[in-house]
Design a protein around this nucleic acid. Structure first.
Lengths: 116, 116
DNA sequence: CCAACGTGCAACCATTGGGTTGCGAATGTA
DNA sequence: TACATTCGCAACCCAATGGTTGCACGTTGG
């Protein structure tokens, strides 16, 4: 998944899953992520219209998301348009899958040892 | 993945991906999660020995994780043993995959429309 | 039985974080 | 040119959070 998604600078893609998890922690931020993904393109003002928070709050959230490399922005005229760059999700995803997998492995090993 | 994992009560599994994402936000908490998964079984005191924080801090983290349904605990003698219950990870995982997928769909649609 | 160990509870502290408001600067439009 | 948007910056507020310490209560083993 997640082709390089051209256009929109990824704004310093921040290494490691840390910032991604941190970014995903907030419900509003996840909502914003979904919204900008669904629209394909959005400004802070547009997003704020559909949310119970101020534009400035949305801006801050978008900055967090940008810091995690989950969105990129591009200035067009007098507005700043954001778009999704979901690549960093992969790393976080992998982390979770690994934890689950390691656990299942352990269960398997125990089970096998028990069957013997 | 993530079989029901018997034993150890899931401690009120909390609905929705919210508590899971919240739980995963903290690096120490993720470390604890990995540690308890790797050992298969651990107490707060044991975990604290390998971490740069106090036992009480670990206890608090374990409570967060339990609230998210990611660990279950079981009292054995005078110690409280925690174990991984990674099932709730699935929901969070799905959320992320969905966001990524929706985005890829949009890209595809745009590309197809452009080719025409 | 008593000492040692491990847990659980509570108070407290400092920092982070989400949110708001206000304002000045840049850009598009009548 | 004058007006209306839209943005970006800064200051400020309050609640949540990660962390600590101290202490009292069960449990185990010599």
């Amino acid at each position: 998944m997640t082709a390089p998604s051209p256009g929109a600078t990824p704004s310093a893609a921040a290494t490691g899953p840390d910032p991604v998890f941190a970014a995903l922690a907030d419900p509003t931020r996840r909502q914003i992520l979904q919204a900008v993904g669904g629209r394909g393109d959005a400004t802070a003002t547009e997003l704020a219209a559909d949310l119970p928070v101020s534009r400035q709050a949305v801006v801050k959230h978008l900055q967090s998301l940008a810091a995690a490399g989950l969105v990129g922005s591009e200035r067009v005229g007098r507005e700043q348009r954001y778009r999704l760059t979901p690549a960093p999700l992969d790393e976080a995803l992998r982390w979770m899958v690994d934890v689950g997998a390691a656990w299942d492995d352990r269960l398997d090993r125990l089970r096998r040892q028990f069957d013997r």
